[in-house]
Each structure stands twice: as C-alpha cells, then as structure tokens.
Nucleic acid binder design. Structure first.
Lengths: 198, 198
DNA sequence: ACCTGAACACCGTTCAAGT
DNA sequence: ACCTGAACACCGTTCAAGT
C-alpha cells in the first residue's frame, strides 16, 4: 500500500498500474492478488488509509470554528495526496474512516442545534464543496506545473476577443489569482457558513 | 465525436477506448488520428461540445435568479452527460465554450455590483460547488444502480456500531435522502447565495 | 499463505505504406 | 486528406502450478 501510494503521487493516478507496483517491489504482478482482490480493492484500501489521517474534531472551539477545522483539514490532506480527491469521486462510498470523518462533522452540526435533515443536508453541502473546490484547485495547480499546458492556457486566454468575452478578459488576473489557495477556499467556506448562520 | 460521446455515456468513462470508437465506426483505430491528435484531444473536443449546451443567461430576471439558473443548468447538463463532470475535473482548462459559460456568470456578478476580486472569487466558488455537488450526486446514483455496490454499502452502513458512530447511524435515512436530488443541490446553492446576500 | 509464469483479451500510439 | 496494417510497449486478470 505504501509503494502504491508513492507511485500514485509520483506519476499521477492516470499512470498508476498494478504492474508498476509489482515491479517496484520486485515481484510478479500476481503477487499483489494475495493482498488485494483487484485494483479497485487496492484503491479502496488506500482511500481508507488516507481518510484515517483526517484529524479529529477539536472539542474546545465554537462550532463554526470546528466546522472550519474539519473542512480545512480534509482539504489539506487532499492537497498533500491529490489522488484522494479522485478516489473519493470515483470509488463507491465505503470504509470505516470515511464514516469517522462524517461522524465528526455531523456530531458538530447536531450539537449546534441543527435538526437531523438540516444536519445531513449541511454535511453533504460542506463535503461536496470541499471536494469540488479542492479538485479544481489541484487541477489548476497541475496545469501550472506542466509548462506545455500552462503555455496553451495563456495563449488561449489571450486569444479570447475582448468583444465576445469582455468580463473574462477584464477579470483575467483576478480569475488566475482565485483559482486556488487558502484565501479562495476560505472565501467559499465562509459564504456557506454565513448562509448557515442566517 | 457523437459515437465517442455515446460510448462514454453507455459504458462509463473508465471503459471508454479509442479502439472501441473505431470498432463502432467500422474503421481501424488509426483512422481516428486524422481528426484528433490523441485521446486527450478527443476528450477536450467532447468537453467543449458539451459546454456549448449550457444555456445562455436569461436577461429578464433578478440577478440571484440568474445565478441560480446558470448553476442549475450546468448541473442538469452534467447529470445528463455524467462524463462532463469527470472531464472538467481531469482535463486542463481550455476551450471557447468554457469561457462563454464563465462570461455569463461573471457578467451577472459584475452587473450586480460585485468588485472584480469578489466577482472572481464568487464565480470560482459557485463553479466548484456545482462541480463537487454534482460529481458526488453522480457517484451516489451510479452506486445505487449497481446492485452489488448498493448491497455492499447497505451492509457496511449497518455494520457500523451505534456506539462508535452514533450520529451517522442515527442520521442514516437522512444521509441517504440528502445524497442527491434537486432539493439537496438547491440547499447548498441557497446557502452560498444567502452568504453572498449577507 | 504466498508467489510464479504463461496466457488472454485488451490498451494508446508510432511508423511506413497505401489511396 | 484519409485510412490501413503491423508492430511496440503496455494494461488487469484468470488459471494452473509451485512452495
């Protein structure tokens, strides 16, 4: 699992293969099937292993700060292990550790006085916001790292006619600045929490 | 492109292959390379083709309703073409049609009086919320359609100890109900818009 | 339980060749 | 411009066989 995780982060999930893991470990491809039923099973094991790293909810904070803490912690882990976002989006929901994270956030929301339905809806909203925001952030960052993709994006942005896309062209620098980062993540998170407070 | 899109929606993006498209068209795999430089190029073409289907912003509505219209339209298109969400999350940003959608939403936000930076941040927040919420919704729906995965989820939910995960167990029915649907999407969207109004 | 080795049915892409 | 056919370097997984 550690070797698999290393390979996924080094070369990206799209280039990850069981044969690659086996090669790295100096065994035949079939040796892995002693420990995992198939590739998806390995994916699920790694997702659970990573979700276990999401920190527990700190107990001595106002509940809005507890929510912020959990959401930021999940994002930080996804940034550290970009494959986690893809695994959450592509593999069926399962695993104790995912339940543990849900338990933490749901507990905070219930303790804050939200009714069962509102707590569940808010939990799903927060989780999907973190997933979407961080997925996009990772995507934009990987584009900036690939000089070829970065050049293509710049030229395609510059080729947009200011007549057809006046606002996009005018706000190009702001859009580039808001395509990731702590500030952007907190902006959206605070919008949700402000909506919740009202 | 139409054949490729059909195959992606019939069998899922993970099972999509250029050789499959070529086979469906009754040509050799290499015939496709006359029209697309490689597989990624075809992906980008399909993403652009789908983004062109996002409806334009209606002009005779209050701006919050305009925002709602665009976000709901994008979600509806992703639900109709589940591969779109995956393509947006996995392919570098590019294409005129993506700029068109951004232009529509950014124009509304600027006309509503938001400063350039706030407009950009709000646009990114809304877009990533739609992406995350709909990605998750698609994932949950596909799990419900696969009887095997659905059974595994039910049993893994029931095996959670009410002692270790009291809130998750208590809210299981609510969580199941809030894992998708128009109501859940609008709940999160309205949280964001309420935060924006405040 | 743990691993091998051969085999099967696939991939995306290159290259040289045709029309 | 458009397509073929062979080839290369890969995949995940099954099956039978070993220790």
């Amino acid at each position: 699992m550690r070797t698999a995780l290393d390979l996924m982060e080094a070369k990206g999930l799209h280039a990850f293969s069981l044969r690659g893991v086996a090669g790295e470990l100096g065994v035949g491809p079939m040796a892995l099937y002693t420990y995992f039923r198939n590739k998806d099973d390995l994916y699920d094991a790694i997702r659970d292993h990573l979700m276990a790293l999401v920190p527990d909810v700190p107990q001595d904070l106002p509940w809005l700060d507890q929510v912020r803490f959990v959401c930021r912690g999940l994002r930080a882990l996804m940034l550290q292990h970009p494959c986690l976002a893809q695994l959450l989006a592509s593999r069926p929901l399962s695993g104790k550790e995912t339940a543990r994270v849900a338990e933490g956030l749901l507990g905070v929301l219930r303790a804050a006085g939200l009714e069962p339905e509102a707590a569940a809806r808010t939990h799903t909203t927060l989780f999907t916001y973190v997933l979407g925001a961080t997925t996009w952030e990772i995507q934009m960052a990987s584009e900036r790292l690939d000089p070829d993709a970065w050049r293509r994006l710049r030229t395609s942005m510059e080729s947009l006619s200011a007549h057809e896309f006046p606002t996009v062209v005018e706000l190009a620098p702001e859009l580039a600045r808001t395509s990731g980062g702590d500030e952007q993540f907190d902006y959206g998170l605070d919008l949700l929490l402000a909506g919740l407070a009202s």
